[in-house]
């Protein structure tokens, strides 16, 4: 870790004043780790934990407002989240470990960086970490790397579980920056790597995530977060699927689905979701949805297994949601 200066402002105005090479610190579970690994080298760290973003509250439209500084653990355990957004609670509990969830915040989860081995190792070429150095993950040990949304410059997987559920829930991200406030849909928040892989998201310098707004979720029991990984806990997804279905009399009115572990950002394909509209659940329907979701998937050296596995995980998740038996995150048997 390199030397840095530190401040703990108490107002947004103070926090958002762009102080050159800065990083915002909230739970610290990702930033501090990256600083120890010499991946992040901020000259200045702005601790935003004193800013007023600690609440979960009802929204007038029946949705929910999640403060950016509420921890992942508190969010997953909050009665309103458990009651109205069990999909979100489930995805949060599928990720990390209790200790990490106790520290990690909702805003930080949106901004967590990839677990690509090559990104994490400053001895290796990585365009995301050190622009212009190349992508050593290509042709390397890339079992965990992305197969969707990749570019010549980067195949790093977007790592979050929580954000996959937020994408399926069509959440809205609230931002506060030097020029004031704005909102953006979660599906538009993260960036594809293209030829600028160092940009993970649309945040501008000095801009902070203040809250996540959830619209009402009319899924009832018809949702699931299904995650396949290399060990049964405390591992990033090889393939994960968040699904919410609006069901009526056994028919799907409409559905929402997002993939994790597969893409360079939370992977959503509106064309695939459109297939679900006003349909009866069926193997052929779900196979078509999977196919459309995975359209354009490209494997590199070690990650063809993802492309082989993903259709089966997607179909199973869709059945779990359709039948109304969401995956438990404590009982490791898959339903």
């Amino acid at each position: 870790m390199r030397s840095f200066s530190y401040s703990r402002p108490t107002s947004f105005e103070e926090a958002c004043r762009n102080a050159g090479h800065t990083r915002f610190l909230a739970g610290g579970t990702n930033l501090i780790d990256l600083m120890k690994s010499d991946v992040e080298r901020p000259a200045h760290v702005i601790d935003i934990k004193s800013l007023p973003m600690h609440h979960i509250a009802d929204r007038p439209d029946g949705g929910l407002h999640l403060g950016a500084l509420v921890t992942n653990a508190d969010t997953a355990a909050h009665p309103l989240v458990v009651e109205r957004y069990p999909l979100l609670a489930s995805a949060i509990l599928a990720g990390a470990s209790p200790q990490i969830r106790n520290m990690a915040t909702n805003g930080g989860n949106l901004n967590q960086r990839t677990r690509c081995h090559y990104f994490y190792d400053p001895a290796m070429a990585c365009n995301k970490r050190s622009p212009g150095t190349g992508c050593a993950a290509r042709g390397g040990r890339n079992r965990i790397m992305a197969v969707l949304g990749t570019s010549d410059a980067c195949i790093a997987t977007f790592p979050s579980d929580m954000c996959i559920a937020l994408a399926a829930l069509n959440a809205t991200i609230n931002l506060h920056g030097p020029d004031g406030e704005r909102t953006v849909g979660v599906r538009d928040y993260h960036c594809l790597p293209g030829d600028t892989p160092w940009r993970d998201n649309i945040l501008q310098p000095g801009e902070i995530v203040t809250a996540i707004d959830l619209p009402p979720a009319p899924f009832g029991p018809h949702h699931t977060y299904l995650k396949v990984r290399d060990r049964l806990s405390f591992a990033f997804a090889i393939v994960s699927v968040a699904v919410g279905l609006c069901m009526k009399d056994g028919r799907i009115e409409r559905g929402s689905i997002a993939l994790g572990g597969m893409g360079t950002k939370p992977w959503c394909v509106p064309h695939a979701e459109a297939l679900l509209e006003d349909q009866l659940p069926s193997h052929s329907l779900f196979r078509d949805v999977a196919e459309r979701l995975l359209h354009g998937a490209v494997a590199d050296r070690d990650n063809t297994a993802k492309i082989r596995l993903a259709p089966r995980v997607i179909e199973r998740a869709l059945w779990q949601a359709a039948i109304g038996t969401p995956q438990s995150q404590t009982d490791k048997a898959i339903r």
Binding site: R115, D121, M124, A136, G140, R141, I144, D230, R231, A235
Partner: peptide, 29 residues
């Protein structure tokens, strides 16, 4: 089921050199 040190032959380096990516069994396993 889990443990494998991933050698990148191009550089002779084991790439998953941390406990997030070198998987020893967790309690759930």
């Amino acid at each position: 089921l889990h443990e494998e040190s991933l050698m990148d032959e191009r550089v002779g380096r084991f790439m998953n050199h941390n406990f997030a990516e070198y998987h020893i069994p967790a309690h759930a396993d």
